[in-house]
Design a protein around this nucleic acid. Structure first.
Lengths: 151, 151
DNA sequence: TGATTGAAGACTATTTTAGTCCTATTTAAA
DNA sequence: TTTAAATAGGACTAAAATAGTCTTCAATCA
């Protein structure tokens, strides 16, 4: 299904909630209550987002979490990679030299291009976009094919 | 990691092998030997590709598998969806009405757009492209962002 | 009719992902 | 200075998805 992990999905819900009142610092418990996601899980996600510098935290009483930057400066790619690590469809796209499968690894070079395309797609959409009312596109087209076929 | 399943990855290897000598009919055993993937696994993948109408098969002695159409008419999206089902990052993008999570589902509408973008990217690359020598792109850009920001 | 090959699906094992919990550290306020 | 409220880090368990194998049946050709 080429699926997003549940955790990454939750992360977008959490961040969307936080982005609505950007200035405010929110504690994990509060976020758990607001989103309906269990506290331990919320905590885990928040920690990962802090490590990825998407959120900033302050400890102690009255502490909590807040966005490290503007929603428009937080991409979907940032969110996904915070939770799941680098965005790539295939292993060998991450480390070009290690991939030495029997027969057919020359084949994979082009996967790198596909990965890059998908990354760019995810990088181009931000948290600010996600909390905006839904747009209904007529048609979306990607110029990737032209890279291949224009010769 | 937003990762492709191993099976889908194998499928691209198998199909790349088959595309190199398109006219020829190849038995599962033969493909297994050529690719180094175990026979039961190869068989499983081939069957899924037949169901998805990417391959055609003939039974019996001298039977085997061959491409159902030109490599240029088989997209990466075809291959992935044959193995993993519909391409979508989030569940709710598949069935719009079922998604009624507590707080924040209005948020998800835009995921639909992202899914569509990724699907288009995968649809635009074909098996013929995959077996072609690697191209090294300078920069690839996706116009998705403009859909959001042009207002 | 027998050998060869695919079809279908059940089943098991493995790996990944999700989810929870415990302990330590930091900070604000009484 | 003590206490309560938070996060940090990481170990651990449970659940789910994925990968892989096996068995039985059906078709085709010589």
């Amino acid at each position: 299904m080429l699926r997003l992990s549940k955790l990454a999905d939750y992360a977008t819900v959490i961040l969307s909630f936080m982005a609505k009142d950007q200035a405010r610092i929110a504690a994990a418990v509060e976020i758990a209550l607001a989103t309906g996601i269990s506290l331990p899980t919320v905590s885990k996600i928040l920690k990962l987002l802090v490590n990825a510098k998407v959120l900033t935290s302050t400890r102690g009483a009255k502490g909590g979490y807040f966005l490290a930057r503007e929603p428009s400066a937080i991409s979907v790619a940032d969110i996904i990679s915070a939770l799941e690590g680098p965005i790539a469809l295939t292993e060998c796209s991450l480390s070009k030299q290690t991939c030495e499968q029997a027969s057919g690894c020359g084949i994979r070079g082009n996967w790198h291009l596909i990965n890059q395309t998908i990354y760019n797609a995810l990088e181009s959409v931000t948290l600010a976009d996600l909390i905006r009312p839904v747009v209904s596109p007529e048609e979306i087209s990607i110029p990737l094919a032209s890279l291949y076929h224009s010769h």
